[in-house]
Write a protein that binds this DNA or RNA. Structure first.
Lengths: 246, 246
DNA sequence: ACCTTTAATTGGTATAGACAACTATAAATA
DNA sequence: TATTTATAGTTGTCTATACCAATTAAAGGT
């Protein structure tokens, strides 16, 4: 029989959340292995002296997050590890490089308020000529140039943007200081050959391959936050992500 | 006041599912617009004569799927459209090209059972030298070569794979005929220059850029199904996807 | 006109129970 | 022995209710 965990009913943390964290911990510490069967929902309810629906809320969340899977009439099982992907999700350059153990930095080439042209206005769901931020930067990891990046951000959502703020993670700034919730991003990938500007900025040779990534980031409520066009040095950068079916 | 829909309590379809479909339909047909507030959970429950918890189950699913967002103390709102991304998700080449209105086809270069080398064995979570399928194909859209693709699939999961099956969507075959559920894929993107083989197979010039995509597809329970390495013609192909925060 | 308090409304958490649909095992039957 | 039938255990769906926490709007007081 499995070791069980304890929950604290008087804690301000919701019970279902405590269960989630406990099961995740058991998986991560190897007390539960892939394809192990979990105690049934009724067992959890009885042993922890809580309602079965509360157990279901916790397990539902873990199933949605990919930690567990269910089979009707049989039981609930531990899914195989998602490797390091667990950490990723949608991340900014700053967050991503830190996760890879590198020190991210930026060289700001330009920070301006400009009127949106038609393409940008369309991406950010604003009317043409609305004032927006244009930010052009060279992105470095461990002081090596990795990408040339041009970002357009809604000035409505990001009032008083400064060069100082740009030195840190913009996603975390938006979430912690402005209090907006980032939801998802739509991203496109293509392969090109370095242009003159990219050759100079990234100090690479003629005909070098470039990974061109365009990303529009949306808040949880669906409003667009930024549109970013990044040219990555293909010799130093591989993009990885996880995509769910349905 | 909103038009309301009706549900059929005697239907074999779960009530929460009927609600989900009805709300999705209202959004898609323009009866509900982005940032519109929905009736409160208690209203839905009263008007449809069902329990509030059932309403919550439906709304939870729609929030997770990105159709709605909630604000405690205020209400539940319609999120902005995710554009065409809605259709995508994780798709096979066949499904993707159809969605883009093109006619997918393949030219099979090789279909063999081979012993897994260390890299492939690692990707598919099998032991070295386990027999696996190796499938090499040229992928075409509207009869134009788009990509050179090498796929490795677990022979355990896909018994009796034939060239005939490969002409259709392998994902749909796995889901409908074998009854396995595809869960997610881990994907990497890099930009390279065409090799001799790729130049010949895709009939492109020297120094042409190639978008190299490597994908490992997993079942819902976390078992790896296939590992695919695809070299796409960069002049004809841009990959797009949506990534969720957390 | 402005501020504070109160009440009403909303989503968030949790309970206790019921029946349905499905799976695996054990018992009964042919 | 082989097949069918019961039975117990599991997740899936749904009900009816209660209270909490955040927000908004109304009422009241200055």
């Amino acid at each position: 029989m499995n070791q069980l965990f304890v929950i604290d009913k008087s804690s301000p943390l919701p019970i279902y959340y405590q269960i989630e964290e406990s099961i995740k911990r058991q998986i991560e510490e190897g007390e539960l292995h892939p394809h192990d069967v979990l105690p049934s929902e009724r067992e959890y309810a009885e042993l922890l002296e809580i309602s079965r629906m509360t157990v279901r809320q916790a397990i539902n969340n873990l199933v949605n997050a990919g930690y567990l899977y269910r089979q009707k009439g049989r039981g609930t099982y531990v899914a195989e590890k998602k490797l390091e992907q667990q950490l990723l999700g949608l991340t900014s350059f700053t967050e991503e490089m830190k996760a890879r153990g590198m020190m991210p930095s930026s060289k700001l080439l330009s920070l301006e308020l400009i009127p949106a042209n038609e393409k940008i206005a369309n991406q950010l769901h604003v009317t043409t000529n609305t004032l927006i931020y244009e930010i052009i930067r060279i992105r470095l990891a461990d002081n090596m140039p990795m990408a040339l990046e041009t970002a357009y951000m809604s000035a409505d959502l990001l009032k008083g943007l400064t060069a100082e703020i740009l030195n840190h993670s913009i996603y975390q700034y938006v979430e912690k200081h402005i209090g907006l919730k980032i939801g998802y991003a739509k991203q496109s990938f293509e392969s090109t050959i370095a242009s003159e500007v990219e050759m100079a900025s990234l100090s690479i040779a003629k005909h070098s391959p470039i990974l061109l990534i365009q990303r529009t980031t949306y808040l949880e409520d669906g409003r667009p936050l930024e549109f970013v066009k990044s040219s990555y040095r293909a010799d130093r950068y591989t993009f990885t992500c996880t995509i769910n079916r349905h």
